[in-house]
Amino acid sequence: MSWHVATVVGTRSVTPTARALTLAVPGFAAALPGQHVDLRLTAPDGYQATRAYSLSDTGQDERVDVVVDEVPDGEVSPYLTRVARPGDQLEVRGPLGGYFVWHEDDPAPVLLVAGGSGVVPFLAMLRARRAAGRRTPFRLVCSVRTPDDAIERAEVDSPDPGLDVHWVFTRAAPPGWPAPPRRLTTDDLVTPGFGPDDGTAVFVCGPTGFVEAATGLLTGLGHPPGRVRTERFGGA
């Protein structure tokens, strides 16, 4: 699999720490929602750094959309969230990964569970579902610290037939929110039509601690481990 030259064509802040980037990438074939890419940056002396990022949109040849959340003291993410601007060049390899993927012709109900920037591959799934005009039952559960940390909340909350979105705020909730800030619980994951007996396909993405907690709740509810696909970031 080869590297493609990519040119930044758009940037947009989506939270105080996260930025959406759009890259024009001649030769890049359309990806499936849930897949990721490697991005490679090269310094003037030839030093290179490579990181993997989930795609936030898919389906278009020669275009790569990512949302990058800054890792404090990171090497690559602060460049992408603060420095990169239209016209800058880097390299892309992908699309990568054949397992953490939603296929739009799969009729099974889909339960998506995101912690923080773990929502990014799910944005690709929601956008693919909408673009294909599918009504596949989707439930998205998003856990974020504060309303400011919610990535693309307006888009995620916009009405979409068959899509049910549920937010969990762990540190600070919006004014008037019906629940106090709290961590994800079993109640957040129980919804008619998205249980283990409904053949639900479950995807969980987020920091390691969040994914461990969420998958523990899900398997406790009876979701077969083989139907729970995970993508983790960070250590434990």
Binding site: W3, V5, R40, L41, T42, A43, P44, G46, Y47, Q48, A49, E75, Y79, V83, A84, G87, D88, Q89, L90, E91
Partner: peptide, 13 residues
């Protein structure tokens, strides 16, 4: 050689 990414210095191992 690969394209150079403007403004990227990197941290050396």
């Amino acid at each position: 050689m690969a394209v150079v990414t403007r403004g990227f210095g990197g941290r050396r191992p």
